[in-house]
Amino acid sequence: MFAIYVGLFIVLLSGGLVIGGLRERKHLRELDEREREYADLPVLNLKTIPNAHEVSKPQMVMGQVVIATDYFKSLATMLRSLVGGEMRAANTLMLRARREATLRMQAHARRRGCNEVHNVRYGASTISQKKGKRGAMQVEMFAWGTAVKRGA
């Protein structure tokens, strides 16, 4: 019985390490690619829009994502919380979520015919957090801002 548990644990751990690592690298590659695509749609967090007389179509745009990390990294962060220090795996997850949410917001702006996003804010919610369950590391990122169209 004990051997089955140990075996399952090793399968989950190595599966998480290999599949999770691959999926993360794939996501990061996709993010790089899509960020290049949206390089001409600047995102700023200024409260007031510079040269506001040149812009039209002001409207709010949003982007959000719920993203989880793999079993291996969840365990690594759990161990990290014993000794303290920087949680690198969590760092990557947060950055991935924020970049994804930003890109979705930019996509929303482009769909609406806008080419700039101003006064960007980030927020997070907690719908998927489970009580008393540690290890499952997931984050819900939300970005919103005011999109405008500059020029004719």
Binding site: G15, G20, V66, I67, A68, D70, K73, A136, Q138
Partner: peptide
């Protein structure tokens, strides 16, 4: 998804 990582589309 908590095992292999990735987006939780249902929650999104």
């Amino acid at each position: 998804k908590n095992l292999i990582g990735g987006e939780l589309t249902g929650y999104t």
